[in-house]
Simulated assay, not measured.
Amino acid sequence: MVRKLTTIGFDADDTLWHNERFFKLTQARFEELLSDYTDASVLHDRLLEAERRNIGHYGFGVKGFVLSMIETAIDVTEGQVPGHVIRHILDAGQEMLAHPIELLPHAAETVATLAGHYRIVLITKGDLLHQERKLAQSGLGELFDDVAIVSEKSVQTYRTAFAAEHGGPERAMMVGNSMRSDIVPAVEAGSWGVHVPHDLEWDLEHASAPESPRFQTIQDLGELPALVAKIG
């Protein structure tokens, strides 16, 4: 009997390990640093606008976040931001880049369980060096048959990752926490999309769930092996 699934793709940040919590903590520090110039809600909106505007220039990840914070600090202070505030922002970014990896519950055992039976692919976006470092620190690197670190996740991203020689998108599954990046484009490519919600989500990753029988939701990665077995 032909198996329905041959490839399983995993997102990295906030699917296999914590990520957004460090952005939220740094943003709280950023709001404290600039509290004399504007209130937190205004600063939040201005920073989000800068991040959205700068994605095409800097991509995703800590470095782009830091540059957007610096730009926002200059803008809200009308160019009067003190040098020590810029220094604090840079220090916060370096701390984020150096923070040790914290795996999410069931991540290691689930990937290890499925790796013996399926082609396992990591598909993540962000800064190349930082993502490579996080994967190395995670201890999961050897479990993946392929790793794709991309600037953006699109339908074509999944068509390429789940190419015909590996069974094609129709026999692949993408697992991730972001509806916009991990689920919607994967389902549009013809794959299964399995959403694993995370308590924290970046505002720019919000999207509506796809209306498709190939869309599934699980509460944590511990439920994934049973779902994979059910699909076949």
Rank of each mutant, 00 (worst) to 15 (best):
G176M: 01
G9M: 04
Q137M: 14
G83Q: 14
L43V: 11
N177W: 05
F23C: 09
F215V: 01
G232S: 13
D199A: 15
F162L: 02
T160F: 13
Q27F: 03
H84S: 09
G9L: 00
G193A: 02
D13K: 00
R214C: 01
A73Y: 07
G141K: 07
Q137W: 13
R171K: 10
A209W: 09
W192G: 00
S68L: 04
D203A: 15
L67M: 12
T15G: 04
D11R: 00
E142I: 09
W202L: 13
F162I: 08
T38F: 12
E95L: 12
S191G: 09
E132K: 12
L90R: 12
K134M: 02
K24D: 14
A73I: 02
K153P: 05
I123R: 02
F23R: 10
T124V: 05
V175Y: 00
D39W: 06
V81S: 02
I123Q: 00
E71F: 05
I149K: 02
L25S: 09
G64M: 00
V66S: 01
A115K: 03
D145W: 06
Q156S: 12
G93V: 04
D45P: 02
R3W: 09
D127T: 11
D75Q: 11
G222N: 01
E95M: 09
T160I: 13
T217Y: 13
L204G: 08
K24I: 13
I8R: 12
G64A: 06
L34D: 07
L200D: 12
W202D: 05
G79A: 07
I55F: 15
E31Y: 15
M179Y: 05
W17H: 05
Q94A: 14
D11E: 01
M179W: 04
L25K: 14
I101C: 04
K63Y: 07
V147I: 13
L97E: 10
G232Y: 08
K134R: 06
L129G: 13
H117C: 14
A73T: 05
I86C: 01
R159F: 05
A161R: 15
V85I: 14
G9V: 03
F215R: 00
S208R: 12
W17A: 08
A112T: 11
K153A: 07
M174P: 03
I89W: 03
L97F: 03
I120H: 09
G176A: 01
A40T: 08
A209I: 13
G168H: 01
A226Q: 11
H44I: 10
L221R: 08
K4G: 08
Q94E: 15
V62E: 03
G139L: 04
V62P: 06
I183V: 09
I231V: 08
A107T: 06
E51K: 00
G79Q: 09
L47G: 08
T113H: 12
L33W: 03
E32T: 07
